[in-house]
Amino acid sequence: MTRALIKAWPALAATAFALAIWQAIVTLSGVPRFILPAPALVAETWWTNRWVIAEHAWITAVEVFLGLGIGALVGVATAIQLATSRYARLLVQPVLVFTQALPVFALAPILTLWLGFGLSSKVLMCVLIVYFPVAASFLDGLLRTPPGYLDLARTMQARPGQVLWRIRVPAALPSLASGLRLAAVYAPIGAVIGEWVGASRGLGYLMLLANGRSKTDLMFAALLTLGVFSVLLHLGVRALTRRMVREEV
């Protein structure tokens, strides 16, 4: 506990400093609260609206978790498929690069048009955002197996399937971990943009709603909630993937 505190204190100090500056700007400039509410007011609004915020945050969290889970699974499956077949790689890799050049966010209106205002359009947004970094970095890892291992396997008359599962996949886990970590950063953004385009629930929807009614304090409260959720998600994914990265486990 104390060690965790020692590790976290620079972040805590920085946060406190930022809050102090924020409060000072609001107090000194006398900027109206619908332009920039003071942190104390945001905290108060957050507390009085905690159940509403929690309900919307839950929706966003479900979208992100589903999107992250499905996107990661499909990404992993794609990487393995492509890693085992040169032919599939030649065929699919250009398509992958092309779809990545296309900003997924630009697809949000179309996805909403096709799938409606419900959960599925946001989940699909997240899936699309998560899919590429996971597939690309895992595939990269699978194609960069240390050649010495493959030489050794060859002199052992190894079967390709066994080489894949016992050497290539474990050797590529650090790459997969970095893909997952990257994906975890982008997934909440995907969900929120999906909600902006069209939704009746979720933190993104709440932010738009509050903004439209000049409830800037509520908008900030929702934004901070999203920020905290994203940080927790990042830390969670980091912790879950730690074993993939460390070789001395």
Partner: peptide, 8 residues
């Protein structure tokens, strides 16, 4: 036991 494992 890598050899036998890689041959299944």
């Amino acid at each position: 036991a890598l050899g036998p494992r890689l041959r299944g």
